[in-house]
Amino acid sequence: MISKEDLEHLAQISRINLTENELEKFPKQLDKTIEYIDILEELASDDSVNLDLQELTFEELRMDEISMSDDKQLNKNITEDGFLRGPKMK
C-alpha cells in the first residue's frame, strides 16, 4: 500500500508538487498500478539470462574530434557575461 507519506516521498525525490486533487486520488491509483506490476514477482530471478539487446564494439565508437556549431543553445535567462541565471541555491 502506498501511504500518503510514501507518496510525498516519491513526489519529493521526483521534484514534483502534487495538487490537492492528485494527493487525494493518486494513492489509490498508484496502488492499483503497483498491484498490477506485482505479478512480476512470480518470475524467478535468474542471472543466466542475458539482459541486453544491443552491443557496440570499440571500433564503432566516436573519434575524439572537436566539432562545434555556432548556434546558440540556450536563449533564456542569459546574463551579459554569458552565464545562465538559475534560481538561488540557499
Binding site: L7, L10, A11, Q12, I13, S14, R15, I16, N17, L18, T19, E22, F26, Q29, L30, T33, I34, N77, R85, G86, P87, K88, M89, K90
Partner: peptide, 29 residues
C-alpha cells in the same frame, strides 16, 4: 525564477506536468 530556492523552484515548475505524466514519473521513481 523569483525568490524560490532551486529545489522548490523545480518542484513548482514540475507541478505543471499533466496527471498521467506525474503518475508515470512517480511509479518510475
Amino acid at each position: 525564477i523569483g525568490e524560490y530556492k532551486w529545489d522548490t523552484y523545480f518542484s513548482n515548475v514540475r507541478e505543471n506536468f499533466g496527471e498521467e505524466v506525474k503518475r508515470r514519473i512517480l511509479i518510475g521513481s
